[in-house]
Computed example of a mutant assay.
Amino acid sequence: MRLKLREGSEVPVSVISVESRERYLWISMERIPEDRFPPCMKNMLLRGSEEGGNRAGAVLASFLGQAGWREGDALKLWMIFAERAGLSESLFRKWFARMHCPSCRTIKSKAKGYPDLGLSGLSYCEPDDRCREISWPVAYALEDTDWGWLKPLGRRNRVRVYNWITAREEELEVSDDLRAEIERILAEAGSEQQIFATKAREGGRLRIRFLVRDSELRKNVLSDLL
C-alpha cells in the first residue's frame, strides 16, 4: 500500500525499513514494427487529441522505449501524436527508455490527471482477440519475450512505514538525498519523539519531507488516535 501524502498535511509514521535496490528497464532487441502495435498505441497515433494528452503521450513514449525503437525514430513517430495533443518534446525525453510502459490494467483505469496514466474514457483502448491473452502493451507486440536486454535505471530507494492514522504498513519511493535524510533522522531522533511525513512546496515543486516533533506532540497525536 502506497503512503499518500498531501501538501500541508502531516502524517505520523514509524519507519520500519529503508531499502535500496538497482532498477532495470527491459528493452526489445528488435524494433517492433507499427503493424504489430496494440490497438491502444495505433489509436493514439491515428486520433490523438489534447484531452488527456500528457497521460497518453507518456504511455506512448514509454511503449516506444521498450519496443526497441531508436530515440530519433521514436521521436518522429511520437511527434505525430504530440502535434495533435499540443505536447512538448520534454515529455518524450522524460519517458522514453526511462520509464516502464504501464500495464493494460493501469491504462484501462480512470485517472484524475497526469502523472497518473489511466486512459479510461479517451477511446484509445479497443481490445481485440490478442488483447485478451496479454496484460501489457509491449507483450502484445512481441514475438519472442526473451529477445531483449536490461538497461540500468539507477537505484530505487523504498521506505516502509507504519502509518498511525490508517494503522497499516505503507511504503513510498524516495530520492538518494531524502534516503540519507531519513537515516540521519532515525539516528538522531529520541525514543519519545514522533516522525511525520508530509509534502512541502520548494522552488515551485512539491517534495516529500520527514519531520521530527517533540514528545509532547507525540503524546497528543497518540491520544487523539486512541
Score class of each variant (00 low, 15 high):
1 M>K: 14
3 L>A: 10
5 L>N: 07
10 E>F: 12
11 V>N: 09
12 P>G: 05
12 P>Y: 00
13 V>Q: 00
13 V>C: 00
13 V>I: 13
17 S>V: 06
18 V>L: 05
22 E>I: 08
23 R>F: 01
24 Y>L: 11
25 L>S: 12
26 W>N: 15
27 I>W: 04
35 D>G: 04
37 F>I: 08
38 P>T: 08
45 L>H: 07
46 L>R: 15
48 G>A: 07
50 E>G: 03
55 R>K: 15
57 G>L: 06
58 A>T: 05
63 F>N: 07
67 A>S: 15
68 G>M: 06
69 W>P: 03
71 E>Y: 01
73 D>R: 10
74 A>N: 00
76 K>S: 14
79 M>G: 00
79 M>K: 13
80 I>K: 15
81 F>Y: 15
85 A>V: 06
86 G>Q: 06
86 G>I: 14
87 L>N: 10
87 L>A: 00
89 E>Q: 14
92 F>V: 07
92 F>L: 06
93 R>E: 11
94 K>L: 11
94 K>V: 10
99 M>W: 09
102 P>R: 02
103 S>I: 13
105 R>H: 10
106 T>A: 02
111 A>M: 03
111 A>E: 01
113 G>S: 11
117 L>R: 05
118 G>D: 09
118 G>I: 09
119 L>I: 11
121 G>W: 01
122 L>D: 07
122 L>W: 02
128 D>W: 00
130 R>Y: 05
130 R>L: 14
130 R>T: 05
131 C>Q: 00
131 C>P: 01
133 E>W: 01
133 E>N: 07
134 I>P: 11
136 W>V: 13
136 W>E: 14
137 P>F: 00
140 Y>M: 13
142 L>T: 01
143 E>Q: 10
144 D>N: 14
145 T>S: 12
146 D>H: 09
148 G>R: 14
152 P>Y: 01
152 P>I: 02
154 G>N: 07
155 R>V: 10
162 Y>W: 14
162 Y>N: 06
165 I>A: 04
166 T>C: 03
167 A>P: 02
169 E>K: 07
169 E>R: 09
170 E>T: 07
170 E>C: 09
170 E>H: 01
171 E>N: 12
173 E>L: 11
174 V>D: 13
175 S>E: 11
175 S>G: 04
181 E>G: 05
183 E>T: 09
184 R>Y: 10
184 R>W: 10
184 R>T: 15
186 L>R: 04
186 L>N: 07
189 A>Y: 01
190 G>I: 02
190 G>N: 09
194 Q>C: 08
194 Q>G: 03
196 F>E: 07
196 F>Y: 11
197 A>R: 00
198 T>S: 12
199 K>W: 03
200 A>S: 09
202 E>P: 04
207 R>F: 00
207 R>T: 04
212 V>I: 11
214 D>G: 13
216 E>L: 08
217 L>F: 13
217 L>P: 04
220 N>W: 13
224 D>M: 15
225 L>A: 12
